[in-house]
Simulated scan of single mutants.
Amino acid sequence: MARVLIAGCGDLGCQLGIQLKQQGHEVFGIRRNIDALPDEITGIECNLFSPICELPNALDYVFYIVSAAKYKDNDYYQAYVLGVRNMLKALQNQKIKRFFFTSSTSVFAQSDGEWVNETSATEGHGFSTNRLLEGEELCNNSSIPTTIIRFGGIYGPGRTHLIDLVREGKAHCMENVWSNRIHSADCTGIFTHLMTLDMQDSNKLDNLYIGVDNKPTPSCEVYEWLAEELSVPEVEHKEPSENSRQLRSNKRLSNERIRQSGYEFKYPTYQDGYGELILEI
């Protein structure tokens, strides 16, 4: 059994905490309002962006799963730089076996549809990616062993924005632009898988993984499939502009490293994940 701290117990953090508790681990969770935490997680009421409050002793693993409240530089600075710095400082006197940091595949700036893996170059192309890379650097420079997971577009229960847009006839897709996704259940599955690997043999872990499913797909193909499954009119197609955010995401992300580590996806393709969501809503 391990003693685990989850810093940032939103949707993913709570899902992870429940899974870890079911596996027999002791789980603590940091949140501003701990009343919203499930019973499986022992709450620590704390603001990560202020000097860190007192943490439990003898922690083994820490998961940092914090999201920016708004798409603004200060919010990204707080979530991915200030909060990380405060947390690492608060943990410096503990013998943490591994610190897991949640990042994003947006730090990859490739935009010509090329294949991208963990060795591909990153580039700060705006305040959001700059802050994410700053947070990663803080983790990598820490004395605590760190693993970074860069997730693609996360969807799942409570994350049905794309389904809602298509169903309401408000969606449009960019021609010839690749997209990469992952179901929230596989995000938490990757977390628990990597922690289990580390408990078995810390030498098995790399310090960086890409978290996406098995099937990078042109965005228009995803939208068209959703429209057909929802029995709604076809989605409008548009040509991407050089400045569009969709174009900057035009790459095919490889999940070979996480699959080679032994992880098996619950939802290996967007059809698997979205198909189940459509049946449930």
Score class of each variant (00 low, 15 high):
205 L>I: 12
158 G>K: 00
273 G>W: 09
139 C>M: 11
142 S>L: 09
261 S>E: 08
263 Y>I: 06
3 R>W: 04
146 T>L: 03
110 Q>S: 13
238 K>E: 15
220 C>N: 07
35 D>I: 00
54 E>R: 10
125 H>D: 12
102 T>R: 04
183 H>A: 07
177 V>C: 15
34 I>M: 04
136 E>A: 11
229 E>G: 01
44 I>K: 01
86 N>P: 06
166 V>P: 12
124 G>P: 10
263 Y>R: 04
48 L>Y: 04
240 P>M: 07
203 N>G: 14
171 A>I: 07
1 M>V: 12
1 M>E: 11
49 F>S: 10
243 N>H: 12
100 F>R: 04
26 E>K: 11
231 S>L: 05
134 E>V: 03
87 M>W: 01
89 K>T: 13
228 E>Q: 15
70 K>L: 12
66 V>D: 00
274 Y>H: 04
12 L>W: 01
66 V>E: 00
93 N>I: 03
157 P>A: 09
121 A>R: 09
31 R>M: 08
28 F>V: 00
148 I>P: 01
237 H>S: 08
241 S>Q: 11
114 E>W: 00
119 T>H: 10
71 Y>V: 08
151 F>C: 01
100 F>L: 14
94 Q>H: 09
41 I>Q: 02
249 S>M: 13
5 L>V: 10
244 S>I: 10
5 L>F: 12
19 Q>F: 00
79 A>G: 07
211 G>H: 04
146 T>Y: 14
232 V>M: 12
19 Q>M: 08
34 I>A: 02
28 F>D: 02
154 I>T: 08
185 A>D: 15
131 R>P: 01
149 I>K: 01
11 D>K: 10
265 F>Q: 04
33 N>T: 13
120 S>G: 10
43 G>S: 09
239 E>R: 14
94 Q>L: 07
97 K>V: 02
49 F>E: 13
2 A>S: 15
238 K>V: 14
247 L>S: 14
211 G>C: 05
37 L>F: 05
246 Q>K: 11
64 Y>D: 07
31 R>W: 03
62 V>D: 00
114 E>L: 07
25 H>D: 12
7 A>E: 10
39 D>E: 15
64 Y>L: 09
92 Q>L: 03
56 P>G: 08
244 S>A: 10
267 Y>G: 03
188 T>Y: 06
29 G>N: 04
32 R>V: 06
170 K>E: 13
146 T>F: 14
160 T>Q: 15
8 G>T: 11
158 G>P: 07
276 E>V: 08
267 Y>K: 02
131 R>V: 00
261 S>T: 14
60 D>Y: 09
240 P>D: 06
164 D>W: 03
263 Y>V: 06
185 A>G: 03
75 D>W: 05
266 K>N: 08
122 T>R: 00
6 I>V: 08
27 V>P: 07
195 M>Y: 03
2 A>T: 12
162 L>F: 15
59 L>C: 11
281 I>E: 13
146 T>N: 14
236 E>P: 02
75 D>S: 15
271 Q>A: 03
209 Y>C: 06
222 V>H: 02
193 H>F: 15
53 C>Q: 13
149 I>A: 02
123 E>M: 15
